[in-house]
Amino acid sequence: MKELSLHILDIVQNAISAEAKEVDIQVLEDERSNEMVIRVADDGRGMSPEVAQKALDPYHTSRTTRRVGMGLPLFRHTAEQAGGHLEIRSEVGKGTTVEARMVYDHVDRPELGDMAGVLSLVIGSNPQLRFRYHHRYNEKEYLLDTREVNEALEGTPISDPGILRYIREMIRENIRTITSTNK
């Protein structure tokens, strides 16, 4: 994966396959502690400790269309290459949290990439789910909750392509504001 946002997109697909109703995505960038944390938490069906362990094995997958499952192993590889690690916390019936920690200024840490694009895609394709996005860059932060977006839209479908384009712009503008260093 070229960008961290694509790993996030991939992990969110896992949450959706696990029948989550709510998905929390966190991107925490802290230059002082030189750490970047990405966390995707869902309230889907969860995994037993044995299955959670196997999820990091590329030759294990829950799907039947093919016999390999590379999503989590690839994300772990990216995290480890950037001086960090990946952890899965999961409980059957409660949900799963995937957390990747990386050294912020590590040369092999990929760019975060197009988070606004990724978020608008998953929101548009899964309008019935609640997504929360929390992005912190040093002391500045941005929070998005699709429940609030839906309230503001007053019944207009969040998945409408016209609306979705504006949601993407809104997210992009807010991320730009918190990550711009000159203000």
């Binding site: 503001a152 839209l153 409408d160 016209g162 609306i163 809104m170």
Partner: peptide, 23 residues
């Protein structure tokens, strides 16, 4: 420029005719 949910609410009004057509 759309920055807040209030902006989104405003723009929604302008898009409404197109959206209801789609709906």
């Amino acid at each position: 420029k759309i920055k807040s949910l209030a902006d989104l609410k405003k723009i929604k009004g302008d898009l409404q005719s197109k959206i209801s057509l789609r709906e």
